[in-house]
Design a binder for these strands. Structure first.
Lengths: 208, 208
DNA sequence: CTGTGTGAAGGAGTTCACAGCG
DNA sequence: CGCTGTGAACTCCTTCACACAG
């Protein structure tokens, strides 16, 4: 399935297709064309066909794509076909929002636990996920083979939290803090800085 | 200053440079080289020079870039040199997190108000920003010349909220919900779907 | 005759190598 | 001599045009 390394931009679009397929399937739509996917996504139909064709021939000529079949294929490509265990480090508003969001809306990942240092919230539950002290991170990460951590602590605490994460064997961090994280090369960090998103958007708001 | 339309990817990197310059300036660093910016950002030094050179010659050969001068230039390019008024629609955990974050960490934007429909939270304050009923959106947007709205309501309510925003004269929406928003062409929508970010990341987590 | 799959062409963005200026 | 600024080469991605299968 996974051929030579796939184009990064294709990988970023696959979850968009997945989202739409989920919607179509829950509305009992069985077939979708690249043109319809184009209308939903804003990407061109050719691009969508190229993206999918990179991994194989998933469609039927003259007809379109079977929604359930395509969904299964995309799940397998991304690696969401078996549940991915994640943890969230930081039980502030953003951490809580992401926890609830992933529990209720993202069926492909499983939030194993939320970690913090504030004694007032340790032991609480976010829906059915327990908030634990950060000292238990390594134990939990090992037990549940956690691969990904979402880092939502205040920026000042991010470097310490990041080294705890790295030390727990987790290899991928999605960093919502402003800090640059210094971690071993074995850990892959992607920054998801929401104010950078907003600032780049303001450029376009002003050029109207 | 704003020449022909700038490459999108350059615009997305400018706020990253801005963040680093802010840090350097607060540490009284007056000069920075493209090599040092490269170390901080992970982008290549050539790329950084090209990005900046697109808008003009901001550096000094043999020396580097004056941090304050470069900061001013980037602010002007993005349009952050005068404060941008934004609103946040949806006072859930994500809305609160974004409000606090922008108030405390993003000095370039001004959160005018947060809107919701839940009577329990209307009238409350998030730091010093009032939560108001959505019916007041148009009035407030007009009064403060608001250009950008961050949409953080639950997905089911997003379409209605989006039309309220469009109707208030706001022309740019950063959409955190899962819904596809159907708004007039005059309104620019950018989706900031956090679970899509996470799902694409899982692809890389699995290819280790 | 419809809509996928795909080589070829085109365009956008990055890297290279070095000229140019302090 | 150091570091910026920049044409040229290159790589990556997108669009085009059409062959091909149902």
């Amino acid at each position: 399935m996974e051929q030579k390394n796939a184009p990064k931009l294709v990988i970023r679009r696959l979850p968009v297709y997945l989202r739409i397929l989920d919607n179509l399937i829950s509305n009992d739509v069985e077939i979708v064309s690249s043109r319809e996917l184009s209308d939903e996504t804003g990407f061109t139909a050719e691009q969508i066909r190229k993206d999918l064709a990179f991994f194989g021939a998933f469609g039927t000529r003259g007809t379109g794509y079977n929604t359930s079949f395509l969904r299964e294929k995309i799940l397998k490509i991304i690696g969401l076909d078996e549940h991915t265990n994640i943890v969230i480090v930081g039980a502030g508003h953003l951490g809580i929002a992401l926890t609830r969001y992933n529990i209720t809306k993202n069926p492909y990942v499983n939030v194993v636990a939320v970690f913090d240092v504030d004694p007032h919230i340790i032991g609480e539950k976010i829906i059915d996920v327990e908030v634990m002290h950060i000292s238990r991170l390594k134990e939990i990460a090992k037990r549940h083979a956690v691969k990904v951590a979402l880092l939502t602590v205040p920026s000042e605490q991010a470097p310490i939290a990041a080294s705890e994460i790295a030390n727990s064997g987790i290899s991928v961090i999605l960093n919502f803090s402003l800090s640059k994280l210094h971690v071993p090369d074995s850990v892959y960090v992607r920054n998801a800085d929401l104010s950078i998103e907003l600032q780049s958007l303001i450029y376009y708001a002003n050029s109207k």
